[in-house]
Simulated assay, not measured.
Amino acid sequence: MSDLATAAEHEPDPSGPAARAVVSLVRSKQRVADHGEVFTPPELVEAMIGLVESEAERIDSRFLEPACGSGNFLVPVLRRKLATVDARYGKSDFERRHQSLLALMSIYGIELLGDNVAECRANLVELFTSHLGLAPDDELYAAALAVVGLNIVHGDALSMQTRARTPKPITFAEWAYLGRGHYQRRDFRFETLTQMSSFSEEDSLFSDLGKHEIFTPTKDHGAVTVSELAEGGRG
């Protein structure tokens, strides 16, 4: 299965140097042989996201990449969501911060290789924090670390198990913004979420359908604040 990480050959800026920047499409032949890790050119990524542009621009529309690599698809999606936040909530710092966190909360990934997991989390947090101009001691910074730690999972999307000494079923946190700086978190097992496709075309991956017991969360954390999330990010 392709690892879909960032890489491509770029044409130089006509106004810049005539040199051509070349980025390898693979990290090593061994990784290709062992894991099928092949990078996706950015222009192809943009074309694919363009097919679902309206969803990518929705703040709360959830995206799951089952072989997320270093975030080649997820980072551009988050960038679009943050642009929507700025357009809608740019005049309110409070709403801009909290809606931006909601945008980050809507990004999910599964990745087989541990170094890619760390890189994907770092890339998402770097985009989020630089976009908002956050200092490392800002509690929203720590909250972002906690969110990506939960949403970007080191696991195998085929077996639906985590990559750990003792594998466990992959679990995702479903986030919702309740307003006034509060979020709702409910945890669902990935293997049960995938069964939603058997109901109808209108049913989305994380919809609260209430049609079957498999859609009952494994844990409901209730309402949480940025400060409470930040404690997890600092841990």
Rank of each mutant, 00 (worst) to 15 (best):
T84D: 01
L102Q: 10
S130H: 15
D86F: 02
N116D: 11
A103G: 03
C120N: 14
C68G: 04
E95N: 10
K81E: 00
L64N: 00
E65P: 06
L124Y: 10
Q99R: 15
F128P: 10
F63H: 09
N72G: 05
G133S: 06
S61P: 03
L102P: 01
S100Y: 08
F94P: 08
R97G: 02
G109E: 11
L124N: 09
V52N: 08
I49M: 06
S92W: 04
A103S: 07
Y89L: 03
V52E: 07
F128S: 05
E126W: 09
R58I: 04
E55Q: 15
R97N: 06
E111Y: 06
K91L: 14
R97P: 00
V125C: 07
L132V: 10
N116S: 12
R96M: 07
G133P: 14
N72R: 10
E46G: 09
E55K: 14
D86N: 10
M48K: 03
H98D: 01
G90W: 05
T84G: 01
H131W: 10
L78N: 05
L101F: 02
S130F: 08
H98A: 07
V85M: 02
D60M: 03
L102S: 05
L112H: 07
E57I: 04
E65N: 14
C120P: 09
D115M: 13
V117W: 03
